[in-house]
Every structure is written in C-alpha cells, then in structure tokens.
C-alpha cells in the first residue's frame, strides 16, 4: 500500500491557535454590518428553503396544494393530522425504537472495541505494532458499499437477516474511533502514567481510572458522531431487512412512504419525524458534533 497509515486518516493538518473573527474597520462598521446581515439572512433563507417548501406541502391538503396559482410558500387548507397519519402508516414509533436499539448497539460496541484497541496501540509494546495499525487503518478503504455482497452472504449464513445482530455487529469495530481515541491517549502526559505505575496501578485500572476519564472530550465527540452515523445508516439495513413490516429502521421506513407521489405530504411528515432525534442531539451536543466532524480536518 503506497501511503503511510497515518495519512489514511486525514489528521495531518497542523494549524496555529484558534483566532477570533476578523474585526471590522470601525469607521465603516455600521454600513458594513447592515450589508452582512442582509447577506446572512438571504443565505439562511436559501439553506432553509427546502425544509420550508416541503413543510408547507406537508401541512396542506394535497388537492389544495397542487391547484393552479396556489403559492408553494404558504400552506393551503392546513391539516395537522398529517404527522399522526405518517406515524401510523409508516409504523414510525416501532421503527424509531428499532433504530435506537441498533444505534446504541453499534455505538456501544464501537466504544468498547476502539477504547481497548486504542489503549494497546498507545500504551502497550507488542510485535508487528506498525503493521497491525496499518491494517486497522486500511479498513477505512473498505466501506460497506464495497463489501456489501459478501457481507450479505456471511449474514445470510449466520441466519442474521431481519435481526438486531445482523444490523449492528458488522459495524461494531471502527478504525476511525481507534485512531481518534489513540490520539487522545497519546495526549495524556506520560508523567501521569509513570506516577500511577509507581502507585501500583496496572494497565487495566489505569485504563478505566485515568486514561478514559482524561480523554473524555475526545471520547464524547466520537460517541456523538458514531451515534449520528449509525442512526442515519441506509444501505446496510435496507439490504438485511427483507421483512420491512417488522424490522425496518426509521430510515428504511421512509422508503415505504415515498411510493406514491400523491401522498407527498405524508412522506415529508415522516422525514421530519425521523430527523427529530438528531435535531435534539444537535441542540444538546453541538460542540461535540462540531469537534467530531472536524477532528480529521483541523488539529487544535
């Protein structure tokens, strides 16, 4: 493989300290500020436009919305029951529950496997360490889109179609998590390890009493982006769920709502319901999400 393991994970950027936003020149600041607000509001409307237009469509009675001359920016003959109908028709509460189970299994599994592996790479000496680390990173080149067909074969052989383990187990190990948490462990000052060793702490107790707590910010942001990715998964659950009535996750359940254009309003309502958990996550953990998403882009 022609590239170094370190480069497979884009963590190579070294940047200076965080800076404040550039200050405006004081004499022109009033006029400039108005100009910026106009631009920012305009861009905000553009970003939100797809949600607004589809929300209006969801709230409108379908026949009224497609009448000639009906403005797409406004609701027509509002019907709030559309959310209720989407939830009933798509069986969305059950699907949401399944999504939660799968997501928690994947994120929990990833945390355990990558904390352990990261500890080995950061603190333990063993033969072929570099080779094994490179192999770990090489898995980043084998996304589920590539390995789909043989993995389906494996899961069929295990009789794991339409099951939680079938949806979750293939994703319980992660090179990205191992890499990020290893970076976190390497950032713990070596004096702490030396001091705890003199105090008689072995590897196992050092891992859980010191290394993990001291790396909490890194682990927290990894947890949040892992949760996000697992909840949003589409291709794999779509492939291993053949009994969609009983096993669809919420993302897959959306597919059944888009079969007829006439019920667009219900499809949109379902999509908005599916997005709610992530909106909540975003509000509660926005800092961790930003840190997690930019972990590969900027160091600092």
């Amino acid at each position: 493989m022609g590239i170094e393991a370190e480069e497979l994970v884009p963590g190579v950027v070294v940047a200076g300290p965080r800076s404040e936003a550039p200050p405006e020149a004081p004499n022109r600041s009033w006029l400039a500020a108005v100009g910026w607000y106009v631009l920012l509001i305009g861009l905000s409307l553009l970003v939100l436009l797809p949600v607004w237009l589809t929300l209006m469509r969801a709230l409108s009675t379908p026949a009224a919305a497609v009448k000639p001359g009906a403005s797409p920016f406004l609701p027509h003959e509002v019907q709030w029951g559309v959310f209720r109908r989407a939830i009933d028709q798509g069986n969305l509460w059950a699907a949401l529950g399944r999504s939660m189970v799968v997501t928690i299994l994947i994120t929990g599994g990833q945390l355990v496997t990558s904390v352990l592996a990261a500890y080995a790479f950061a603190y333990l000496r063993f033969p072929f360490k570099r080779v094994i680390f490179a192999l770990f990173m090489a898995t980043l080149l084998l996304p589920i889109e590539v390995t789909l067909l043989p993995n389906l074969h494996t899961v069929r052989d295990l009789d794991w179609f339409n099951s939680y383990q079938g949806m979750a187990v293939p994703f319980m190990a992660t090179a990205l998590g191992t890499f990020l948490i290893r970076q976190g462990f390497l950032g713990v000052p070596s004096e702490i390890r030396d001091a705890t060793r003199l105090e008689g702490y072995g590897h196992w107790s050092y891992l859980w009493k010191f290394a993990v707590p001291l790396t909490r910010p890194v682990i927290a942001s990894f947890t949040v982006i892992s949760f996000l990715a697992a909840y949003n998964q589409y291709l794999w659950p779509r492939a291993v769920v053949t009994d969609s009535n009983n096993w669809s996750t919420i993302q897959i359940a959306l597919r059944d709502l888009t079969t007829t254009p006439e019920t667009s309003n219900i499809a949109v309502a379902g999509a908005l319901v599916a997005a709610i958990p992530i909106v909540v996550l975003l509000i509660l953990f926005s800092r961790q999400i930003v840190q997690g998403l930019t972990a590969g882009a900027v160091k600092g």
Binding site: T54, L228, Y231, I252, L254, R255, T258, L282
Partner: peptide, 20 residues
C-alpha cells in the same frame, strides 16, 4: 442555521427532494 442540514440523514434529505 448554516450547520442545520447535518441534522438530516441522506434518507431524510432524499424524501424532501423527492417531494420538491
């Protein structure tokens, strides 16, 4: 507002644009 679309999955965004 500018970061808000990270709250959508591919499936959610696809449904919105299917309707659009």
């Amino acid at each position: 507002i500018f970061s808000s679309t990270v709250a959508t999955s591919v499936a959610v965004a696809s449904v919105l644009f299917y309707v659009l």
